[in-house]
Design a protein around this nucleic acid. Structure first.
Lengths: 264, 264
DNA sequence: CGTCTAATTGAAGCATCTCAACATGCGTGG
DNA sequence: CCACGCATGTTGAGATGCTTCAATTAGACG
């Protein structure tokens, strides 16, 4: 279980592209395919889910803790994050949201948002009315199961992050995050080789990993100095996957990408 | 949002009892009622879920990371925990499981266990074959939504714990956990006033809160010395809810107990 | 060319960890 | 009934990883 494997042993196959290099499927379909096969009819239903789009500029909230949304959002473009504030004003980032992630499917099931979702960069959102989701849960058990699975894969990431924050050293924690994000970017076709866009500030990373801004700066410098990564201008490259994943103690199974054959 | 309220503002109404003080409903029904109303037919389905029971002695695993279970378990009696081990052999406890908690509903949806579940005390489990759950998801959308909701309420707890481990001081973290457990025990009728059973070692608490055994010992002594709690022989009493929840910065909304009126 | 945000650096402080010893209670076998 | 082992809890002391404060640099933008 703890053997370090190259990323391609875990990553979902890269999404299909047409002759012009364009993706064949919408980002939502690309995402959910990781959790099970989709019939054409189901793809059609998914394509009809988004009734509208919305633009949210960087640093603004998409949904706020305590809201009772009447629609859910799928992130079409940009980078967002779930976060919570403590009573004394500190922020803890709970996860990063990439295109295809359904930012607040939770709110459909639980009604009340128990955390906020904020745009880290300019974001393009697809609006999904709860009524459409209600219809899916009433009439399409297989799709329902896929959506459920998506929320639970999310939940699995939370668990892994808890392990990181609770038990890993700062260096391992940073390394682990960078490994996870590579695999996730791969899975939605937003990663070339070992390079992907990571347009976040060090302050964002600090709030996400439960450490101070100053400290993450030094950890990053350490990783750079050791030739493990480069990170500049919002672009991250993993120079040495083998060593970085060793530092992280990274095992991608928690992302549940390697199990597509198990999903009926 | 940050106003401290007495626990009864949050806690679910105590479960119904008959003339002899016995609970009217099974622990599973008691649990799921917190997430929405149940028809008699649905109660019947839930009652038929458990086809067998199993005993697991303290300190043994109920399910292990990597397993592909063919049934799920509902905890009928005892205390269990979800946990993961890091590659260097440290344990992080991810959550505590009380009676009524469905220990591995995850495995039904995600197939592969990405974490282990261990018995902290002797445990009595109810076995629920995946086939029965499959039937529910195929034919009973409302029950499916309740189960989904249960898994997401779990997920909400993970998020809150992340905030704790990442951003709260050790003292606040301990206080927060003790507050959460009181509310949860209330909700299933396993709490008298401000007292409940907490048969865990300090080592368990340390692994759950991401700190060292020595440190949690000192924090507990601090809380005792300040007259906030007593903890001995596996019984915890919160002496001063007001101050303890202030120390914790506790806001129970993440438990999603106060929202039953929203659930159709 | 001044202003703003993000990144970087230094240095002091402290929260928490690690190591190590000791105390307590409990079950078990002699 | 005592001796012993074992798990748990407690305490002390030194080490350190990380934080905080404070100042500086670098880059982006009008």
């Amino acid at each position: 279980m703890n053997v370090i494997l190259p990323w391609h042993e875990f990553a979902a196959p890269s999404p299909q592209r047409d002759g012009n290099g364009q993706f064949v499927d919408s980002v939502l379909i690309r995402k959910l395919r990781n959790f099970g096969p989709l019939s054409e009819a189901e793809k059609q239903i998914l394509s009809d889910l988004v009734v509208d789009t919305q633009f949210v500029p960087a640093r603004e909230d998409i949904v706020h803790e305590g809201d009772l949304p009447t629609h859910s959002c799928v992130l079409l473009e940009g980078l967002a994050c779930r976060y919570k504030m403590t009573s004394d004003g500190q922020r803890q980032i709970l996860s990063f949201q990439f295109p295809g992630d359904i930012s607040d499917l939770y709110s459909f099931v639980l009604k009340v948002m128990d955390h906020s979702i904020g745009a880290l960069t300019d974001c393009e959102l697809g609006i999904i009315p709860h009524a459409k989701l209600q219809d899916i849960t009433a009439n399409h058990p297989h799709l329902t199961r896929l959506l459920w699975r998506d929320t639970l894969a999310d939940s699995s990431k939370f668990r892994e992050w808890m392990v990181g924050i609770g038990r890993r050293s700062a260096r391992a924690r940073v390394a682990h995050l960078l490994c996870e994000l590579l695999i996730r970017c791969k899975a939605i076709g937003l990663c070339e080789g070992y390079t992907y866009e990571l347009p976040v500030t060090q302050s964002d990373l600090a709030d996400c990993l439960g450490m101070s801004l100053v400290h993450i700066n030094r950890i990053l410098q350490g990783l750079r100095a050791d030739g493990l990564i480069t990170l500049a201008n919002g672009t991250l490259t993993i120079q040495d996957w083998q060593r970085l994943s060793e530092v992280a103690g990274f095992d991608a199974s928690y992302l549940h990408f390697g199990n597509r054959h198990l999903f009926a």
